[in-house]
Amino acid sequence: MHSLIISLQSEFYKSRKTLAFWSSILLPLLLCIAISLGFIFKYQDLIKHPPQILWFYFISPISGIMGSLLLPILVIYNTYAVTNMEYKGDTWKSLFSLPLSKLSIYTSKFLYIIFLTFLTMFLFALLIIASGHAIELIRPQLEFGDYNPNELIFKAFGKLFLSSIGIISIQFLMNIMWNDFLKPFGLGFLLTIICSIMANVGWKYAVYLPYSFPSLTVMNIMSAKKGAELIIFDQAIINSLICGAVVFIIGYFIVAKKTIK
């Protein structure tokens, strides 16, 4: 456990100056600022809507693009960036020649990518809520404060986060196996497009495709807008977690046998 904690500390220390780390923070910040500006400048078109709908208008563009493209791409990029740091400096050999268990080195990287994704989703939830209330301060006509969306927003972004675990594990495995940008990135991107389409056309087996999980989650969030209850642990999320656990274990056996040339 101690070696897992210090490996995690090291992951943070190594990546705190990288684009992967900052993109996890800047992405929600910039998107929320952009949408807030839209609300502030176009407020007259929005006055007529009740607060519940205002919140959904704020969330919809973020979660829509998030599910179909942004979340998978963010995960694909973060996974690549965190593993590529070791390939780039040829540092796998020094990591594995330290008195640390291979399991803790492997787990810390996996957990760190999960943490970065969690950080982005958490910041999205937090910044959306903060932005809504900030907009009301500037444009009191937009009465965001009359509806409390906190639970729904945290549930939605929590669910989006959980839907990405399956993709994280697959991308992580691909990056561990290949010292390459194109293979994991290209394959991940292709799978995202195909599976997103599968989910959107309502293919019944989409619930078994890890790259469909974020799209399915967004569809679920959108239906909550119409009054349906947002259940976090639906089949897609359970499958995402199962996929994450299974691929993580397979990946460990690959790492344990990995030849550091």
Partner: peptide
């Protein structure tokens, strides 16, 4: 050990590379 060319993180300073190793080795 020093194996082949040194394994270092190019985006970190020399000192940060050593600090990172200190973290890992306690």
């Amino acid at each position: 050990a020093l194996v082949e060319q040194p394994a270092i993180y190019a985006h970190l300073t020399g000192k940060e590379n050593l600090v990172n190793r200190c973290i890992l080795l306690g």
